[in-house]
């Protein structure tokens, strides 16, 4: 399909037009073509970030493209439309990163405002991200995916359900069970 389209912009526009009409194969091809481009763009802008975060951002952009695919006008060039979404998601990720960084500084300051004993207990319970990540890896795949999408990547239930191919209800149950398991595991850290 669309093999005659040599211009990448035109080819991507045609794939998106077919995807808007519900063509599953064109949609998959579109995303497969976009993914390496997105990785390059994101690595160029976020050089200090690791591979995992780059992939998280790539997935975030793909989900965003999926959510707003109706805003693409097939008569207009595809790349400016895509790049506007990428820029927006990159800026949001910088804000999220800054918020998390600010939160980490606050945790470090706890000893100043509370007694050392309280601060140390707090840190012992919640302060070991490596142990938490290890605990997440031990979860069953359904629960692990739910935690990664809803808690780590902050996706909405609808997006996560679309991405995982499960129902919103099943995701809620998986998240509830995962949180219980992590709570139990955190007592052993």
């Amino acid at each position: 399909m669309m093999n005659g389209d040599r211009s990448p912009n035109r080819r991507l526009a045609n794939l998106m037009r077919a995807a808007q009409a519900g063509d599953t194969d064109s949609y998959a091809r579109l995303f497969e073509e976009l993914t390496p481009r997105l990785r390059r763009i994101i690595r160029r802008h976020r050089q200090s970030r690791g591979i995992d975060e780059t992939e998280d951002l790539v997935q975030d952009v793909l989900l965003s493209v999926h959510a707003v695919r109706a805003t693409y006008d097939p008569e207009r060039p595809f790349m400016p439309w895509l790049l506007a979404i990428v820029r927006n998601r990159l800026v949001d990720s910088v804000r999220r990163y800054a918020r998390h960084a600010a939160h980490e500084v606050t945790v470090e300051d706890l000893a100043v405002t509370f007694s050392d004993e309280s601060a140390n207990i707090h840190t012992e319970v919640h302060g070991d991200p490596d142990a938490l990540l290890a605990a997440i890896q031990t979860l069953p795949s359904g629960q692990r995916n739910a935690i990664e999408m809803l808690k780590l990547r902050e996706m909405s239930l609808k997006d996560a359900a679309a991405a995982s191919g499960t129902s919103v209800g099943a995701l809620k149950v998986a998240t509830h069970r995962a949180m219980n398991a992590l709570r139990k595991a955190s007592n052993k850290f």
């Binding site: 194969d25 998959a28 006008d73 679309a162």
Partner: peptide, 25 residues
Amino acid sequence: MARDTDAVIRRLAQSVEPVRPLPNP
């Protein structure tokens, strides 16, 4: 993680439904 991205693409493609493009502003 790249494998996860492939899985996300598969799931999105499988769940895609027709949409009518928004008219221009």
